[in-house]
């Protein structure tokens, strides 16, 4: 158990430090790299929670796909200019309020203890023995969640069409 606890804290620190660096770095490339660190931390947490399939998805899709897309755009639109300019917008007032409100919430949570959340202790019906994580996910995805899966296919089609329309010079 101890090793799990230690790993949790290691990954959690990775996630948080990565995230803070993402939103504070001046250069977009640095931000992107920090984001990768943060996403890796999240992937680690997936492993801790026995979501191996999600771990793979996170590495391949997120870090391999989305981040490449980001880096590609950062290279494409020249950001040298942006790096020299003012870094933060005028939204800091709203941000301050958001931080204050959320901080108060988290503070109250920590002060009253996690028990106050009343997270229900589930009645474990026993996991389908002998099924690996990927099989479980697949089982769920293609039976109960068949419909959203189909809708997601249209969603991705729209995303492809949309990014092509937007990014091409002339159709």
């Amino acid at each position: 158990m101890l090793i799990d606890t230690v790993l949790f804290y290691i990954f959690a620190v990775m996630v948080l430090i990565g995230a803070i660096l993402t939103i504070t770095r001046r250069s977009a490339v640095h931000s992107a790299i920090s984001l990768i660190v943060s996403l890796l931390g999240v992937a680690g947490l997936y492993l801790l929670q026995q979501a191996e399939f999600l771990f793979a998805v996170q590495i391949v899709l997120y870090i391999g796909g989305i981040m490449v897309l980001f880096l590609f755009v950062i290279m494409l639109v020249n950001l040298d200019q942006a790096a020299k300019e003012r870094q933060f917008s005028g939204g800091w007032m709203v941000a301050l309020i958001a931080i204050g409100a959320a901080g108060a919430g988290i503070g109250a949570l920590l002060w009253r203890g996690f028990g106050s959340l009343h997270i229900p202790a589930p009645v474990l019906e026993g996991t389908p023995a002998g099924l690996g994580n990927t099989e479980q996910v697949a089982d769920s995805l293609f039976s109960t969640y068949l419909l959203p899966f189909e809708i997601a296919s249209i969603l991705l089609l729209v995303a492809v069409v949309g990014s092509v329309i937007m990014a091409k010079k002339r159709i």
Partner: peptide
């Protein structure tokens, strides 16, 4: 031991950081 609540607290913190990033940064990519 690490409980679900720990994960919840972590995710809340991450949500907060993300929110601050959206509200304060000027660079659209970020």
């Amino acid at each position: 031991p690490i409980t679900t609540a720990h994960y919840l607290a972590l995710s809340l913190a991450l949500l907060l950081i993300g929110t601050v990033g959206v509200l304060t940064r000027r660079n659209v990519v970020i």
